[in-house]
Amino acid sequence: MALLWGGSLRGTLAPGSVSDDSERPEIRSIDRFPLRHADGRPIVSARTIRAAIAIAEAVFSRAGAPPAAERMDFLARDLEDYMARSGARTRNVLTLMVWLVAWLAPLFVGRLSTVSSLPLPERVRALVRLEERFGEPLLAVKAMLCLLYYENPDAAREVGFDGLCLVPSSRLARGERAP
């Protein structure tokens, strides 16, 4: 099947499978993958995302109030996308860490339940104590949440990050704004 060297391979490939820069500088394969299995099941369970968001609400709460709902929605969508696309090994480890934190943290304030069921002030206390005494699983979850949360342009601006370094200078010259 010497398809390549006789020049016949190109003709046998499905449309779009040759990503020769001269023909098609942009590849679209990444975005076309669904975040769900073919039978409609999500790759990352909704319960895991809910547990992670409950942790995020506590981590990013200010003066006793959780962040704005739209910011949490952005985080939930991005978190699902990140976990779905990062490979089974990473997804399984992160899922395990989320549930470890969700179940362990309440124990530090004498509650036997998941972190989602605690009121916000108690959730914060539980996570503070967990971080002081057994920080490793929380670090993994917090790292993932912080990375995604501060990519929200509003959250980034709040901590003084203008995001300009993420825009090529050629586009800045055309007046394009930070993402």
Binding site: A58, V59, R62, G135, K142, A143, L147, Y150, A156, V159
Partner: peptide
């Protein structure tokens, strides 16, 4: 490293986390 990674590696939850994140610049 990106601000999110800087924030992640500093200890703190809630207001403590916010205060530390504001140090990023």
């Amino acid at each position: 490293v990106p601000p999110g990674v800087l924030a992640a590696t500093m200890p703190g939850i809630a207001d403590d986390q916010g205060a530390r994140a504001e140090l990023i610049p």
